[in-house]
């Protein structure tokens, strides 16, 4: 039988085990920070403030990481589903189904190659430089 004194433990188990409870917690945190940002008129997205707040909670030890692990996995695994509605805005920009769209694709492909090559080579240079200095 469930005794009244077991409730704190049950709550703790729910926080550690249940993905939906944890997702609810993350939604609550986002809602709080989003409301605060709107109320205080801070020019930073509410979600980013929420991220910073959660990071502070975790680093200071006020909230254990186990309370967020499953919820985080649940949300980040399905992120594609969350930005799909935004990406469908393409329906409102019919001009991009023509030549303009091909130009965008070209810009993305060339730009991505440049970013990848530039990032990888600069990190590699940094790595070799620090390796040489260490030896």
């Amino acid at each position: 039988m469930v005794h009244i004194r077991d409730f704190p433990t049950l709550g703790r188990i729910a926080m550690r085990r249940n993905r939906w409870v944890q997702i609810g917690l993350l939604i609550g945190l986002w809602w709080l920070s989003d409301t605060a940002v709107r109320y205080l008129e801070i020019p930073v997205p509410g979600a980013v403030i929420g991220l910073a707040a959660l990071l502070v909670l975790l680093i200071s030890g006020w909230a254990p990481a186990a309370w967020f692990r499953r919820g985080t996995k649940g949300l980040l695994d399905h992120m594609l589903l969350f930005f799909l509605p935004a990406a469908m805005a393409l329906l409102d920009h019919r001009d991009l189904f023509g030549v303009a769209g091909l130009k965008v694709v070209l810009a993305v492909v060339v730009g991505t190659v440049l970013v990848m090559v530039g990032t990888a080579l600069s990190v590699e240079a940094c790595f070799r430089w620090s390796a040489r200095r260490a030896s």
């Binding site: 997702i23 993350l26 939604i27 945190l29 986002w30 920070s33 989003d34 997205p45 509410g46 979600a47 980013v48 929420g50 991220l51 910073a52 707040a53 959660l54 990071l55 975790l58 990481a65 967020f68 692990r69 919820g71 985080t72 949300l75 980040l76 992120m79 589903l81 969350f82 930005f83 799909l84 509605p85 935004a86």
Partner: peptide, 14 residues
């Protein structure tokens, strides 16, 4: 579904 992008951003803290 788009609204859930907010909590997903917060989750990047982990």
């Amino acid at each position: 579904l788009g609204t859930l992008l907010g909590p997903a951003t917060v989750a990047f803290a982990l």
